[in-house]
Computed example of a mutant assay.
Amino acid sequence: MRGHLGIFVAAACLAGCASGPTGNMTLTDSVRPGATRLVIYRASTFGFAVQPNYVVDGRVIAGSQPAGFVVCDLPPGPHEVAVSNMPLSTNLFGHGSEKISVDLRAGSTAYLSADPQLGIMTPGQITLIQVTENQGRADVANLHQTNGACGKA
C-alpha cells in the first residue's frame, strides 16, 4: 500500500510541472528590434498544488507551473505583471509582491521569478521578484516552457 501511495504522490507532483522545451533550447534567439521580452519563471516545485495565473497588463497569459516559465514579447514601456492568488492569501513571512511594475527597454529581456510563499488561512501564494538577466538566464536554463497566451510585440 505504501508503495502505491509513493507512486501516486510522485505522479501528482510531475503532473503539475511544466513539460515543454527547456530554457536552453528556447531562449537562444535575440529579441526583435523594437520589442522586449518578459520571462516569468517558477523554479521551485514547492507548493506544486498552488498554480494561480500570471496576468500581464490585465490579461491572463499562463498558469504558474512549477519548474516552468512563460515568455512574452511585448512592446517597450511600462507593464504591470500580477499573480491571481486566492483572495484570502496574506504574505506575512515571505518576500516579493503579487503585483509588480516593470519598465521594459527595447531589445532587452526582463526576468521575473515567481516564488511560492507561506500564507495565513490558505495554502500559500506566489509572489514576483525581478532578478538580473544573468540570474534569470541561469535559473531558466533547465526549466520547461509553459504555453502562454502572449502575443508578439
Rank of each mutant, 00 (worst) to 15 (best):
M1F: 10
L5A: 15
I7N: 11
I7C: 09
I7P: 02
F8L: 15
V9K: 11
A10R: 13
A10M: 12
A10S: 12
A12P: 01
L14Y: 09
G16Q: 14
C17H: 05
C17T: 10
T22D: 08
T22K: 13
T22I: 03
T22H: 08
G23S: 07
M25A: 15
T26M: 15
L27A: 02
D29V: 06
S30I: 04
S30H: 12
S30Q: 13
R32Q: 13
G34H: 11
R37T: 01
R37L: 02
V39Y: 05
V39W: 02
V39K: 04
I40F: 02
Y41A: 03
S44H: 02
S44R: 06
G47N: 09
G47D: 07
A49W: 14
A49E: 13
V50N: 13
V50K: 03
P52D: 09
N53I: 02
N53Q: 15
V56D: 00
D57Q: 05
D57P: 00
G58N: 07
G58T: 06
A62T: 00
G63D: 08
G63P: 03
Q65M: 14
P66D: 08
G68F: 00
D73H: 05
L74V: 00
L74A: 05
P75Q: 10
P75A: 15
P76R: 10
G77D: 07
P78A: 15
P78L: 07
H79V: 06
H79Q: 10
H79P: 04
H79N: 09
A82Y: 06
A82H: 06
V83A: 06
S84K: 12
N85D: 08
M86G: 08
P87N: 09
T90D: 10
T90W: 13
N91E: 07
G94K: 04
G94V: 02
H95R: 13
H95P: 00
G96W: 01
G96E: 05
S97W: 02
E98L: 02
S101E: 11
S101I: 00
V102K: 04
D103A: 12
L104Y: 04
A106E: 14
G107N: 10
S108Q: 13
T109Q: 08
T109S: 14
T109M: 07
A110F: 01
L112H: 00
L112S: 01
S113K: 09
A114M: 01
D115N: 12
P116Q: 09
P116V: 09
Q117W: 05
L118W: 12
L118D: 01
G119Q: 03
T122E: 10
P123R: 11
Q125E: 15
I126C: 04
L128M: 07
I129M: 07
I129N: 11
V131R: 05
V131P: 01
T132V: 04
T132I: 04
E133K: 09
E133Q: 13
E133S: 11
E133W: 03
N134D: 14
Q135T: 13
Q135R: 11
Q135C: 00
G136N: 05
D139H: 09
D139S: 14
V140D: 02
N142W: 05
L143G: 00
H144G: 01
H144E: 02
H144Q: 05
Q145L: 03
T146N: 06
T146L: 00
N147A: 12
N147H: 09
G148S: 06
A149T: 03
C150L: 03
G151V: 03
G151A: 15
A153M: 04
